[in-house]
């Protein structure tokens, strides 16, 4: 399927994928993430039950210390 991940087009080699699986698929290893699908916040506990569809706009942001 084709999605928009962090503002860039991305082809995912799966027909169905949850947000939690996408994070593993992309090897995002940061512990602290903020995730959104189609501009809606997805909380950590909901990532494994939230399915991504073809054409979805997905945001996965790493939280980085410093300020």
């Amino acid at each position: 399927m084709k999605i928009i991940l962090n503002n860039r087009e991305e082809v995912i080699d799966r027909d169905t994928i949850t947000l939690e699986e996408l994070i593993q698929y992309k090897s995002y290893t940061f512990k602290l993430l903020v995730t959104k699908i189609n501009d809606q916040l997805v909380k950590k506990d909901d990532r494994k039950i939230t399915h991504i569809k073809d054409g979805d706009k997905v945001v996965v942001l790493h939280m980085i210390s410093g300020g």
């Binding site: 602290l32 993430l33 903020v34 959104k36 916040l41 909380k43 942001l61 939280m63 980085i64 210390s65 410093g66 300020g67």
Partner: peptide
């Protein structure tokens, strides 16, 4: 958002988005 710690950044971003 002008925090130092990553945990606090996550907390405020999630709160505001929500």
């Amino acid at each position: 958002e002008a925090f130092d710690e990553a945990e606090m950044k996550q907390m405020i971003i999630e709160t505001v988005l929500d």
